[in-house]
């Protein structure tokens, strides 16, 4: 995208000498400036300021207090639980995403569109519903509730419920980042590998996986960010047992509601840092994916 605008700017600069008249494809300078200022102002107030507030409030009682927050066993427990949950949910959804992308981009079959729509479903519903359905299924008065109680199995208000709800809300991320990419790449290389004698797994691991690695990374990063930060769905199924079933976002809520603002923002700053790293990796993997696609197109169209 940057290259695109740059080359256009260069192209017009080469043709025009002297004072620049407004080209046919852009606005007068004062309008451009106004629009850029509006963008900066809007994003500054609505997005950047809240982000900076997190760090500002987190350090409001000093660096020492900030560090102390993370020595609290209940905070540590919430971090552990968050990491554990993501460590289960993300790999599960990654395997699913790869399988779904393979099935949906390498084959044509009836109901393909419906399947894509169903995979998107968790993005469309409220995260609260994502938690609600597991309560309705596994809760005390849920469909399977009595059976679970008889067999002394606890799902909701315990780790399995938290993992399930997290898996639900992060369900489509990897699949959604892979499907358009694999669609765009086509499967000529996979076909070539087949004619050279590679079997299905060899095609997958040696050709497809290296080809989609940046897109896959992108999907995993988004999936992980959401898994660690999910609030609504997990809030419904967690039961809010302190030091036991509270993930980091839920712990933030408790600290906040108890007016321990600095501590709440300190924990929040850790999640914000994760979000910033996510954005950085996302931007990076996006540009790598775009580059890979460009090279692929060049390889097939400009073979001179």
């Amino acid at each position: 995208m940057g290259a695109f605008t740059n080359s256009r700017a260069l192209a017009s600069a080469r043709h025009i000498t002297g004072p620049l008249p407004t080209s046919a494809r852009t606005e007068p300078a004062w309008i451009r400036t106004t629009l850029i200022v509006i963008t900066f102002a809007f994003l500054g107030v609505f997005i950047l300021w809240p982000l900076l507030t997190v760090f500002h409030e987190g350090f409001s009682k000093g660096f020492g207090f900030y560090i102390e927050t993370f020595k609290d066993p209940i905070t540590i427990k919430s971090i552990e639980l968050t990491l554990l949950t993501a460590a289960i949910a993300v790999p599960l959804n990654t395997v699913f995403g790869l399988a779904a992308a393979w099935a949906l981009t390498r084959f044509k079959f009836k109901g393909r569109q419906l399947l894509i729509a169903l995979i998107d479903l968790p993005l469309w519903v409220s995260p609260v519903i994502g938690g609600l359905i597991y309560i309705l299924l596994f809760g005390r008065q849920g469909t399977l509730g009595p059976w679970l109680i008889d067999h002394d199995i606890q799902i909701v208000f315990a780790l399995p419920g938290i993992v399930l709800a997290t898996t639900f809300v992060t369900f489509p991320f990897v699949a959604r980042s892979l499907i358009p990419l694999m669609e765009a790449q086509g499967h000529a290389e996979e076909e070539a590998a087949l004619t050279l004698g590679a079997n299905g797994w060899q095609v997958f691991f040696r050709i497809t996986l290296p080809k989609v690695k940046w897109g896959l990374l992108y999907g995993i990063i988004l999936c992980n960010a959401r898994a660690m930060g999910e609030f609504g769905a997990v809030s419904v199924v967690s039961g809010h047992i302190r030091g036991k079933t509270n993930t980091m976002p839920l712990h933030i809520e408790i600290l906040y509601n108890e007016y321990q603002f600095a501590a709440a923002f300190a924990v929040a700053s850790l999640l914000s840092l994760l979000a910033l790293i996510t954005l950085f990796l996302k931007t990076y993997s996006e540009s790598r994916t775009a580059q890979q696609l460009r090279e692929a197109q060049e390889l097939t169209t400009l073979s001179h």
Binding site: T5, L48, G229, G232, L271
Partner: peptide, 28 residues
């Protein structure tokens, strides 16, 4: 359409609401 200093930064910033946990956004 426009080229200006900080464009890439602004571009990345747009995605922050996707990446920032909702509870963090809420208290901020």
């Amino acid at each position: 359409r426009y080229e200006f200093p900080g464009r890439r930064f602004v571009d990345a910033l747009v995605d922050l609401p996707f990446a920032l946990p909702t509870a963090v956004a809420g208290i901020a």
